[in-house]
Design a protein around this nucleic acid. Structure first.
Length: 337
DNA sequence: AAAAAATCCAACCGCCTCCTC
DNA sequence: GGAGGAGGCGGTTGGATTTTT
């Protein structure tokens, strides 16, 4: 298959676009549509190759694109999706309305990637760099098992992505904003609900939050408050406040946040408030209710590690509840955060 | 104030997939 | 089935801008 000649081989212009060129391209497409990109330049009176025109249109001139400031919510989405999909920028972009893959890619490379590295997190794997050092050998097999589960979920989600035509809407109130006392109002009817990927909460009021070892599949990388570099952690019991950026390095993963059939393993009170929940560590790949876009984790207790050790054999009945913990609203087999 | 270094990001390159014939 | 063209995608570049020395 022969390659089409590139711009320099046929003497076409390269480099930055002038306002006049932009205007020509814009005018032409507005009047005729782009049609064949290869044929467009000559028709529009541009000394550019079709590919260059397409790129200019797609990444800059298109009227339905938003440029500039990336919001915190968008950052969260990018990181979540990157953790799941890797460098599949076009797929990631499809879930960020009006953003182009090029912009997201640039933003990742210039901002987010560096930020994660600073946090001691591998931007490729989204796992702490010191994972190998902090995980004991006895935990290795469990790690592998859970990583396999993670990969399974990842692949499944990818398959869904490929087949789904509708973009997945992220709940702007979701991440790290679990209510401590009052459940949030149910989402509007047209808002897609969140299937549960990871639900995990534990309380032990009064413990020092900075010493927590979070034994779980590495959650999607937390977004720091841009103002003070802190990670918002929802208030649970007497534990509250923010986990500072330096504490993130102490997070240790061994794969504990799992999924399963939601209602079987959630704990909720008469008011339909989840007081403590964890998905069953089984039937991971059989249960289609996995939505890795919406994982949630909460960690706030020194009791967490010992609790996690027996995780794989954990039965729902063995988890006690804490009356003062409340997060999420259960509706049928879904949870709204 | 000037030079050097760092950062940003638009645009390009080349590979890949899809579609048509 | 496969050849070839068109468009899409991700990696990379390099010029412009900003920050630091």
């Amino acid at each position: 298959m022969g390659r089409s000649p590139c711009c320099d081989k046929v003497g076409l212009k390269k480099g930055p676009w002038s306002p006049e060129e932009d205007e020509k391209l814009l005018d032409y497409i507005q009047q005729h549509g782009h049609g064949s990109w290869r044929a467009l330049p000559s028709k529009a009176g541009l000394e550019r190759c079709g590919k260059s025109c397409r790129l200019r249109w797609t990444n800059y001139l298109r009227p339905d694109i938003k440029r500039g400031h990336i919001s915190l919510q968008e950052e969260q989405t990018i990181i979540q999706l990157h953790a799941l999909l890797g460098n599949r920028w076009s797929t990631i972009a499809s879930h960020l309305p009006k953003r182009t893959d090029n912009e997201i890619k640039n933003y990742w490379n210039t901002h987010l990637k560096k930020r994660l590295i600073k946090m001691g997190i591998d931007p490729t794997t989204h796992r702490p760099n010191n994972l190998a050092l902090t995980c004991g050998e006895s935990k290795d097999s469990a790690n592998l098992s859970h990583l396999a589960q993670w990969e399974s979920a990842r692949l499944e989600a990818e398959a869904r992505l490929v087949h789904e035509t509708k973009p997945i809407m992220l709940n702007p109130h979701h991440y790290y904003q679990l209510p401590s006392t009052t459940p949030p109002p149910p989402p509007p009817p047209d808002q897609p609900c969140l299937d549960v990927f990871k639900v995990l909460a534990w309380t032990n009021p009064g413990e020092d939050i900075s010493t927590v070892i979070l034994n779980g599949l590495l959650p999607p990388i937390p977004i720091l408050n841009s103002s003070d570099n802190t990670l918002p952690i929802p208030t649970l019991g007497l534990c509250n406040g923010n986990l500072s950026i330096t504490d993130i390095n102490s997070i240790e993963t061994s794969g504990a946040c799992t999924t399963g059939k939601p209602n079987n393993n959630l704990f909720y009170d008469d008011h339909q408030h989840v007081v403590k929940g964890m998905m069953e560590n089984s039937e991971y790949s059989n249960d289609a209710r996995i939505d890795p876009f919406h994982p949630t984790y909460v960690a706030d207790s020194l009791s967490f590690p010992s609790f996690m050790e027996d995780l794989t054999d954990l039965q729902p009945s063995s988890i006690s509840t804490a009356d003062d913990v409340c997060w999420g609203v259960v509706e049928e087999d879904k949870i709204y955060y």
